[in-house]
Design a protein around this nucleic acid. Structure first.
Lengths: 111, 111
DNA sequence: ATATAATACCTTGCTGTTCTATGTATAATT
DNA sequence: AATTATACATAGAACAGCAAGGTATTATAT
């Protein structure tokens, strides 16, 4: 399947917030989880994900907490905030509105 | 309704190709038509649309032809090419794949 | 008559998002 | 001993959309 990567632009925030609304996760885990849940469709790059998480944290939508594993390797677990949950529900609506609008153009399609 | 404008990125090509697959149109008309068909959702800026049309033409997906009106005002009508129609059908599939993938993340959502 | 809005094209520069590439470091596997 | 997987991070390039500006004609409103 050939993907159109640009489609993800502006949508990744919703995906991240949605995952973190279910449980706190760390960056590397999020990448794997998105890939798994989308049956291999999503393959977030680290250069995309980490800056995105930093943006979301800076915006107060998520909160990162360092957690040291027994083996001494640190992970940064991100938790969604109340503000983040509000944002998520807004973005869900916006996503649906967007799909509807696009389909109004693409659907009546006998061409 | 508050829109998330970035969502359109990577999707506008499909919308333009779809319109032009139905009939040749000129830039200004496309803007109005997209607004009308989406019930006011889409409001393409000229700074977005004209460069987009130029890109599509350069890629051989559409073909522009100047047409002089009786009043002397020129319009540039764009026609879809065979290559453009092929591209459109590919993009339709990609769009559906993308929706499906996003919904795999957002849908199982009781949060 | 005159000002404003609508039509119709265009470009430049800014911004934001993604990706590639690179860097660091440890643990597990081959 | 070498490679892969885990886990974080950033810098620079590419690209699309937008605001703002420009030109020019026609139609409408004042």
């Amino acid at each position: 399947m050939v993907q159109k990567r640009e489609l993800i632009k502006g949508n990744s925030d919703s995906l991240l917030l949605c995952l973190l609304a279910q449980q706190p996760m760390y960056g590397y885990q999020i990448i794997k989880e998105l890939e798994k849940r989308s049956q291999g469709y999503f393959n977030f790059k680290e250069g995309t994900l980490y800056p995105a998480l930093h943006r979301l944290e800076k915006a107060g939508l998520i909160l990162g907490k360092w957690q040291m594993l027994s083996n001494g390797r640190p992970r940064r677990y991100y938790h969604i905030t109340a503000k983040g949950r509000t944002k998520l529900s807004t973005e869900r609506v916006q996503w649906q509105d967007f799909i509807n609008a696009v389909n109004m153009i693409l659907q009546p399609a006998e061409n």
